[in-house]
């Protein structure tokens, strides 16, 4: 029986999701913060925002939303739906789909989609075989 109430691990996952979202929207939040408190911000005080700025540079708002959604799907497939097939499909399928749609340039020569393909496609083939054999047995 699934426990249909909020447990500690749920809060943990929601917390991680919200942190990812906060980092992703940091590009929008930091300029507004600085504009709002422009008079009160000294040069030393603005140093406090540096780690936030550095971390949020790695995310865009859209990628943060996608990553947190994949995290939620992976967690929910374990906790509520209890299927490993859904977990693998959601994680690797999600990564493959979204990198295909929004192909990010990581370095000058490396793109996200071919990088994800290397480990996502074999995993998806594995899950497919697993699903077929599970259905037979």
């Amino acid at each position: 029986m699934v426990k249909r109430r909020v447990i500690f691990h749920d809060i943990l996952v929601f917390g991680i999701m919200s942190i990812i979202l906060l980092l992703g929207f940091g590009q929008l939040i930091i300029p507004t913060l600085e504009a709002a408190f422009a008079e009160n911000f000294s040069a030393e005080a603005s140093l406090l925002l540096v780690p936030y700025r550095v971390l949020s540079a790695a995310f865009s708002p859209r990628s943060a939303m996608i990553l947190s959604y994949i995290l939620l799907l992976a967690y929910a497939s374990r906790r509520f739906f209890r299927s490993s097939i859904m977990l693998y499909l959601s994680v690797f399928g999600g990564l493959l789909l979204y990198t295909y749609l929004y192909n990010i340039k990581i370095t000058e020569t490396v793109y996200a989609y071919p990088l994800i393909k290397i480990f996502a496609v074999p995993q998806l083939i594995n899950t497919m075989i697993y699903a077929i054999f599970k259905a037979e047995s």
Partner: peptide
């Protein structure tokens, strides 16, 4: 985009918790 994201999250949470 955020509101669409909220719908997707609500979809999972409603399925999970109700």
């Amino acid at each position: 985009q955020l509101s669409i994201y909220a719908v997707a999250v609500a979809f999972i949470l409603v399925l999970g918790y109700s």
